[in-house]
Amino acid sequence: MTADPAGLPADLIAAVERLCRTPRLLVAMDFDGTMAPLVPLAGDARPLPAAADAFAALAQLPGTTTALISGRALASLRRVASPPREALLIGSHGAEVWLGPDARPLTLTEDQARLLGQASALLRDIAGEHPGTLLEEKPAGIVLHTRMATDAVAAAAVEQAHLALDALPGVYLSAGKRVLEVSVVRADKGQGLRTLRDAVHATAVLFAGDDVTDEHGFSALGPEDVGVKVGSGQTAALFRIDSPEAVGPLLELVLDSRRTRG
Rank of each mutant, 00 (worst) to 15 (best):
P223L: 10
D198M: 02
A220P: 13
D30H: 09
G100Y: 00
S257G: 06
A42N: 06
T146P: 11
T213S: 13
V212G: 13
V185T: 12
D125E: 15
Y172A: 06
T235K: 11
R21W: 05
A45P: 01
A95F: 05
P5D: 12
T146E: 07
D30N: 12
R85C: 04
P249W: 05
A187T: 05
A57F: 01
A161N: 04
T2M: 10
T133P: 11
A152P: 09
D125M: 09
P47D: 09
R24Y: 00
V97C: 09
L238V: 09
R261Q: 15
L168A: 03
A51G: 11
L135Q: 08
R78C: 11
P49H: 10
A237P: 14
R194V: 03
D53G: 08
Q60I: 00
K229M: 10
I126Y: 00
D125V: 11
A51K: 04
G43P: 00
L180M: 11
A149L: 10
R78W: 01
F31E: 05
G33S: 11
P131Y: 02
A42Y: 03
T2N: 12
A87H: 01
P131C: 08
I142Q: 08
K138C: 06
A140H: 12
D256Y: 00
L88F: 04
F207C: 14
S232E: 14
G43F: 04
A73F: 05
L173K: 06
Q60E: 15
W98F: 14
A246R: 15
R194S: 13
A164F: 02
L144P: 02
A54K: 02
L115K: 08
V153M: 09
R197C: 01
M35Y: 01
L180N: 06
A59F: 00
R261P: 02
L25C: 07
F218V: 07
E245Q: 15
S120F: 04
T133V: 07
D4Y: 03
L193M: 03
D11F: 07
Q160M: 11
A45G: 03
K177G: 12
Q160D: 13
D211T: 09
V228R: 08
D4F: 06
T64L: 11
R104I: 06
D210N: 13
F207W: 04
V27N: 11
I69F: 02
R104W: 01
A164D: 12
V97W: 03
G43I: 06
M1F: 02
Q160V: 09
Y172I: 01
R186A: 14
A237C: 10
V200A: 08
R259M: 07
L123G: 10
I142D: 09
P84D: 07
L26H: 01
G63Y: 07
T133F: 03
A199Q: 04
